[in-house]
Design a protein around this nucleic acid. Structure first.
Lengths: 140, 140
DNA sequence: AGTCATGACGTAATAACATGA
DNA sequence: ATCATGTTATTACGTCATGAC
């Protein structure tokens, strides 16, 4: 109900404090955002200046910046999450590829089907087993 | 801003002292949380029942569940993010370990220092290179 | 048939407030 | 006091179902 489209229409002058909407005007927000880009914690002076300039109480300026900082934080997280998941999947599949390569190794000198690897004393084997176990631990 | 003064009569119980606190009482929240665990989208019946039971308007019940769902969503994300980063690191290190193992392979039959792997025609080699490139792509 | 309005209900953003460190 | 964080309430926008034309 009541979709007012005010924002784009009355652009001629400053907004009369539209009775209905408690939102800040686009102009106010634009100004606030501009400052926020430079500094997310405005000093007292900036705060008071904005207060006069935008006809908002200092308290409102304060609240706006607090809310904005919180918003940015969660917005970052929402953005990082899918990125991490994708990256995760890719590395995992690379992992499998290399593991397969390791099993299909063929010796170049004896040309034989040398399926197996080096010594048992070496830590190498242990480390690989270890990695395998940790991997299973995640998936399980 | 002056909002409603709603019938927050706090019924018979103890929480009279918070005069104009807009917070819901612990008892109310406890009850709401309990139902939320079972279903995050309560039907009309449940809503009305809660409304009577907790002396909150149906609208308030509605709003509480909406806010709760949003809260849960961001809470999940906050929790997943560090988990994903940790997982990511571990898989990455496994990756390196296996890669090293692949280079230090020694043939078991000829006992030689068979450093190298199989044929050039095989897709194996390509796949490994591919993985390597993709990996670099991430880090760069 | 369609299409246009309207309402019910959802999420997302936001303003204001409350609290603890 | 200021700030991060969480809570309550409102607004904006989207979708879907229903109904009149």
């Amino acid at each position: 109900m009541e979709h007012h489209g005010e924002g784009s229409i009355s652009s001629n002058t400053d907004y009369m404090r539209m009775k209905r909407s408690k939102r800040h005007t686009p102009r106010q927000i634009q100004r606030l955002e501009a400052l926020f880009k430079d500094c997310s914690h405005p000093c007292e002076q900036h705060k008071l200046q904005l207060s006069r300039e935008l006809a908002l109480s200092p308290r409102q300026i304060d609240v706006w910046f607090q809310n904005k900082r919180a918003q940015m934080k969660t917005r970052e997280e929402r953005y990082d999450n899918p990125k991490l998941i994708e990256e995760n999947d890719k590395i995992r599949s690379e992992n499998i590829t290399i593991r397969e390569a390791l099993e299909n190794v063929i010796c170049s000198t004896c040309g034989g089907p040398s399926i197996n690897v080096d010594c048992d004393f070496d830590e190498q084997k242990l480390r690989i087993e270890n990695a395998q176990l940790k991997e299973e631990n995640f998936n399980g």
